[in-house]
Amino acid sequence: MATSIKIRKIAELLEAQVVCGVDLIENEVRYAFASDLMSDVLTLESEHLVLITGLTNMQTVRTAEMADINCIVFVRGKKVTPEMIDVASENNTVLIECKYSMFRTIGMLHDAGVSPVY
C-alpha cells in the first residue's frame, strides 16, 4: 500500500496556494500523475490521486471530475479562472496553484513518499 499524504501537507511542502476546496485539505492522496495531456489522465484507474499539470483551462477540471481525481496542482505559476473554481467546488475538487516547475514539484512530492501510478 502506498504512503498517504494529506492535501494540506502537499500545499505546505510546495509553498502553494489552495484556491478551491480549503475545507477538503485534510483528505489524503496516495498517488500522483503529471501530464498536460488530458486523454492520458482519462486512461488512469487509480484512486486517491493528485494530478500535477501546467494546463489551466476548464478541461483540466472536467477531466478531474470524470476521472474521480480529488486534487489538482497547477505548476509554473499558472492561475485558475473563476469558472474553473465554480466547477471544481461543485465536484469537491481541491485546486492548488504552485509557483514551482513541474519537475521540481514532482521531485518534492516523490521525496515526500507520494507514489507513481505506474
Binding site: D36, M38, S39, D40, L42, N57, Q59
Partner: peptide, 15 residues
C-alpha cells in the same frame, strides 16, 4: 492546447 488531440479519444471510448 486544450489537452486533447493526441489520437486517444476513440480508443479511450472503446476501452
Amino acid at each position: 492546447e486544450m489537452g486533447f488531440g493526441a489520437g486517444m479519444g476513440l480508443p479511450n471510448m472503446k476501452r
